[in-house]
């Protein structure tokens, strides 16, 4: 399957994402600049981490209104898989593809550490390579990762199994409501998460727990 990585001014995890996708699929992803209005024909679109537009206004707010985002919204509606990591998650909530919002960490501190992630729903295109209830190691690095949704939205995403990952074993690093670390859209083909699975895919990273997420999304046997 083919993939694309979207690059914004201020993205800084795009090269990590390209390296991860290349390592796992054997093929380099297309890199698409945010001013483009055409997407290549791909099966997976990845919005990487970083500080697009310096987090001006709100994290992800300006990037979410970039020309390419209309194309991504249309592709998501056709069932194309869309993955947003960290700033990518913030961008997907800001443009309405995912519910809720990422607020400033409750501690007000930038957190850069390893957390534990529970796989809450393994029946998504991104999580099929994991067992339900499996606990993964994964690094986080963010200042605005405090997931929030109003009570009605929260109930809806819990009832619809849209919570893909929760922080486990008391490692919630940011105050996220219900320990939510990653959510999908209703259809399940759009996933956003704050942790960085692309930074735990080979022995040199100290573990490979993130690898199955990309292998699942690209339908590659792990």
């Amino acid at each position: 399957m083919k993939s694309a990585v979207i690059a914004f001014p201020g993205s800084n995890r795009d090269r990590d994402m390209i390296a991860a996708l290349t390592s796992i699929s054997g093929t380099a992803p297309n890199v698409v600049w945010h001013k483009e209005t055409n997407l290549p024909d791909v099966d997976l679109i990845v919005i990487p981490g970083g500080f697009s537009y310096g987090d001006y206004l709100r994290a992800g707010a300006i990037a979410a209104r970039s020309p390419i985002m209309g194309e991504i919204k249309a592709a998501a509606a056709r069932g194309v898989r869309v993955l947003g990591v960290c700033n990518g998650f913030q961008i997907l909530t800001e443009n309405g593809l995912l519910p809720g919002v990422l607020m400033r960490n409750a501690s007000l501190l930038f957190v850069c550490r390893e957390v534990k992630l529970e796989v809450v729903n393994n029946r998504t295109p991104f999580t099929g390579g994991y067992e339900k209830g499996q606990v993964l190691r994964c690094p986080v690095a963010h200042h605005d990762g405090n997931y929030f949704a109003d009570p009605d939205t929260l109930k809806a995403i819990e009832d619809n199994d849209q919570v893909a990952f929760r922080y486990a074993e008391g490692t919630n690093p940011n105050g996220s409501i219900h320990d939510i670390a990653g959510v999908t859209n209703r259809a399940g083909n759009v996933l956003g998460l704050m942790p960085h699975p692309e930074n735990l895919i080979e022995a040199a990273h100290g573990g490979t727990d993130g690898r199955a997420l990309f292998a699942s999304a690209l339908e590659i046997a792990a």
Binding site: R58, A61, R65, E94, G100, V101, M103, F148, T153
Partner: peptide, 9 residues
């Protein structure tokens, strides 16, 4: 509605 506020919060 479109940019300045995030009306979720």
């Amino acid at each position: 509605e479109k940019l300045l506020a995030n009306t979720v919060i």
